[in-house]
Structures are given as structure tokens and as C-alpha cells.
Amino acid sequence: MSLEKSDVEKIAHLARLSISDDDIPSYADNLSNILQLVEQMSSVDTNGITPMAHPLSESQRLREDNVTELNQRDHFQQIAPATKNGLYLVPKVIE
């Protein structure tokens, strides 16, 4: 499977990445190569095999349900571009 220019543009948009038109052909090539590798792997018969969810064959450790985090709002908000009344401010989201 090889990607078109429009595919690359769509993927970039979904990921909110700004890419220049000049770079699109090389992105398309690189991504297409990855997809070819995936196609190769798809040709292997995997019937009856549980898909791997994680490269480590371990299961998730669970945490006790305790509140362990203190309020560090002032600390976190030092790096926020804009805050008010304890809220993070972002460019208007149109409803």
C-alpha cells in the first residue's frame, strides 16, 4: 500500500502537525515503507494467536485506591501560558 499526498495531509492534520509541501513526498515514501512492512507481517497466519498488547509479557500491577497526590496547582500553573481563577486558559473553543 502506498500513500498519496492527500493521505499524508490527512494524517498530519489529525496529529495537528504542520508539515511543508516540499516534505510530503518523503513522508509518503517513509510511511508507505512502514505499511509495506506491516503488510508483510499480515501475510503470516495468526489464527488462534492472542494479539500482543504490549512487548513485555507481564500483566498490569494495580494501585490501591488512595489519594496520594497533593494540590500542586500553583507549581503546575507556572508553566501555563495563561491562567485565571485557577483555570487554564486556552484559545476560545467554539461551541
Binding site: N85, L87, Y88, P91, K92
Partner: peptide, 10 residues
């Protein structure tokens, strides 16, 4: 969405 001079509060 109210009262933040054109910004949205989160």
C-alpha cells in the same frame, strides 16, 4: 466558555 475575554477556561 464564559467571561474569559475570548479565551476558554479549563
Amino acid at each position: 466558555h464564559e467571561d474569559f475575554h475570548g479565551m476558554t477556561g479549563i
